[in-house]
Design a protein around this nucleic acid. Structure first.
Lengths: 262, 262
DNA sequence: CCAGAATATTGATTTAGATTAATTTGCTGC
DNA sequence: GCAGCAAATTAATCTAAATCAATATTCTGG
């Protein structure tokens, strides 16, 4: 079941040159990945549904930034909205901090996923977004993306679809938070991660959590302690195996049954 | 404070002809509202940010359907996605029903708001949407909206913004559900409704709830009983006045304080 | 106008998950 | 290599909201 590939393998396969801002000719020795055309994620990311010529046009506006290290911010709450970002490697979390200092995680982002779509309407980002590990991203200035969408109906349609997926996803979270138990939430979270890892050709049954139990709790509306307890409980039931950040899904069918009632 | 206008007043001000599908010349005696240009909501709805000529083009693709009566469905879960809808009068709720028959309300829609943006990505609606009272809507076939967006950069931008607002709104709900108490949720819900009523020039302090306590509960992740109890509690604290579906907000400042901590 | 159904309220009891607290494990930088 | 800190686990207690139950009110269709 594809257990050979691991998170680390992905990270290694994408080397990043120090100053990728300089638009370089196609085959730069420091990067296997300076263009959308050659990017291993192009089937999952913005270029999907675009033809060669169109991808090339998209390529022109993508800025491949320096890598981010753990804790670095992509942007902060109330920063002026400028770009959306595609995760190239690693992972990010977005969160809001309320006046009283309590933080709430609003989303996690894995390779091939698009970050920063909060902000288009308000012209400011409503979340902060921060790297959970050493990560790299592609920055796409929104005004240019908009202009290009205007020329390429495929891109416009695809971007509508991406935003819409975001809406659909948020509504699933709505259902989850308004009616699932702690165990159902956790099972659903693990299965969700699993299929997102599968999407980028990583093992859907064995993976490393890029986030802390605290992050998961904030995202699922649970406390750290509850998340931890549920993990142990699921392990005792032989549905998963947990070793700190490493998760093995032993019985996906039964995990699905847990949330199946809903 | 604008208490003169009421829900009923709005309903009356918009009369609807029986077969509005026939595109009619500007001044039809049966409707004060057969074009976006003359619609009292045009400052809040899709036409916002469009100039006269552009509004006219939008007008050409809008279908003004027959009115819906309470309980009528705009579309159902898994129906093929075809259109988005703008509420002209009345109100709607969208919901999903899970396998075990438990329903969850995912959103409420008031005049000037856009329904049906779930579905663009999946080509099927993921919610069902139903009128909460006698209501009328404008239907906008999405393929045509997309085509038009492609010609009118303003419309494209505005539609991005509308979708983005949806995302931002859903994320607020995420925060609400993952960390607010029952009282905080309820206060936040009432204040939210209040400002949405204000947006369509209805009183922000005295309004009729178009939905049941059960709907509110499903939306907020609470039981009917809890919603009812919180209403009574807020009433006892003199923050609101409740008479069945009629709500008066007596102390908006204090209501804001309830959620202010967050 | 009335009967039955849907909706809403209120109270008593239970419970899932929060809170509090203490301990263990793992990780980072000197 | 280990000191100090962040993250995770586990247990005991508490509590907000669910559940169960009964009644009251409002709406609807004949």
């Amino acid at each position: 079941m594809n257990e050979g590939s691991s998170k680390e393998a992905l990270l290694q396969s994408i080397s990043i040159d120090a100053k990728p801002q300089n638009r370089a000719p196609k085959f730069c020795p420091h990067s296997s990945n300076v263009s959308c055309t050659s990017c291993r994620l192009n089937e999952l990311c913005l270029p999907i549904a675009l033809n060669k010529t169109e991808i090339h046009q998209l390529d022109q506006i993508v800025e491949r930034n320096r890598p981010y290290k753990k804790g670095d911010h992509l942007y902060r709450q109330n920063d002026k909205f400028k770009s959306v970002y595609a995760v190239r490697s690693g992972s990010f979390k977005s969160y809001v901090v309320s006046d009283n200092g309590v933080g709430r995680v609003t989303g996690f982002f894995l390779p091939g996923e698009i970050i920063g779509m909060d902000g288009i309407a308000s012209t400011q980002y409503v979340n902060s977004t921060q790297a959970l590990e050493h990560s790299s991203i592609c920055e796409i200035p929104f005004s240019q993306l908009e202009k290009l969408s205007h020329q390429l109906p495929n891109l416009q349609h695809h971007f509508f679809a991406i935003m819409d997926n975001e809406i659909a996803k948020d509504q699933q979270v709505h259902t989850l938070l308004s009616s699932y138990t702690a165990e159902e939430r956790t099972a659903s979270f693990l299965l969700g991660l699993s299929s997102r890892f599968a999407r980028v050709s990583l093992s859907p049954v064995r993976f490393l959590l890029p986030m802390t139990r605290g992050d998961i709790g904030e995202y699922l509306g649970l406390t750290v302690e509850t998340v931890s307890r549920i993990f142990t409980a699921l392990q005792r039931k032989k549905l998963i195996e947990v070793n700190n950040r490493e998760i093995v899904l032993l019985d996906m069918t039964e995990l699905r049954n847990i949330i199946g009632a809903n």
